[in-house]
């Protein structure tokens, strides 16, 4: 596997918020937090309304990682950005820096004191033993260790939200777009969502490591 990525197809997302609900349920996310959110652009404007589901995008050059004062983030082999809740001090810096509003905080104490940061884990748990109770309580389900993909994408009713290896997901999307009679270099929007050059680099790596098209 080269690189895990999410892809949300703005042409398909119907803003049902199923992914939000699925994630909350699967990971038993703390009260007041939605790891995933669906944002609608130009709500109600015919022909222009688009919805996108967004959570942590597991950035290649992750801003959260760069600003965390205790350096509690890390990245797995598959490019999933995870963090260690035992180290997190709840300073909120990651949420200032993150472009996607992924890090969120349970409120703790009287004056809006932040608890430990919580964010999407790509259903990959965290730095506890895989599948353990401690891991589940802190980070949610570790579906990757069970050979499954993030639930939000797997249960998406319109298959707007896709998750998995970048090369594979891109293939699915390409197939889809061919049917839609479209074309273009960065039709997936990844270069905007993940940063410049991310599409090409990951596709190449993916092809090299054999994760690409068969």
């Amino acid at each position: 596997m080269a690189r895990m990525k999410f892809l949300c197809d703005a042409e398909r997302c119907i803003e049902c918020n199923g992914c939000v609900t699925a994630c909350k349920n699967e990971n038993e996310v703390p009260w007041g937090i939605s790891r995933r959110r669906v944002v609608t652009i130009a709500d109600g404007v015919i022909g222009k309304e688009k919805s996108l589901s967004v959570a942590c995008m597991h950035c290649s050059d992750a801003p959260c990682m760069a600003v965390c004062p205790v350096d509690c983030f890390y990245r797995t082999e598959e490019g999933v950005v995870l963090h260690d809740k035992d180290l997190c001090i709840g300073c909120g810096y990651c949420s200032y820096a993150c472009p996607f509003g992924a890090p969120q905080f349970p409120q703790e104490g009287a004056f809006g004191q932040r608890g430990k940061m919580d964010k999407c884990t790509f259903c990959a748990g965290g730095p506890e033993e895989d599948g353990s109770q401690a891991e589940f309580e802190k980070y949610g389900r570790n579906r990757l260790a069970e050979g499954k993909l993030p639930l939000c994408a797997e249960m998406c009713s319109t298959k707007a939200l896709l998750a998995g290896d970048a090369a594979e997901v891109a293939n699915i999307f390409r197939e889809r777009v061919v049917r839609r009679s479209g074309n273009g270099a960065d039709i997936s929007g990844w270069n905007t969502a993940y940063g410049k050059g991310s599409l090409e680099a990951d596709m190449k790596k993916g092809a090299e490591s054999g994760g690409g098209a068969k």
């Binding site: 080269a2 690189r3 290649s60 050059d61 992750a62 801003p63 990682m65 760069a66 600003v67 983030f73 890390y74 990245r75 797995t76 082999e77 598959e78 490019g79 995870l82 260690d84 990959a124 965290g126 730095p127 506890e128 033993e129 895989d130 599948g131 570790n142 990757l144 260790a145 069970e146 050979g147 680099a201 990951d202 790596k205 993916g206 490591s209």
Partner: peptide
Amino acid sequence: PQVIKYEAGKYQGKRDTLPWDSAAY
């Protein structure tokens, strides 16, 4: 630089079990 550049297939992090080191795999 305060963040390590992502390199495909490289683990950059704290001690954590890898997904295929789980009970299932």
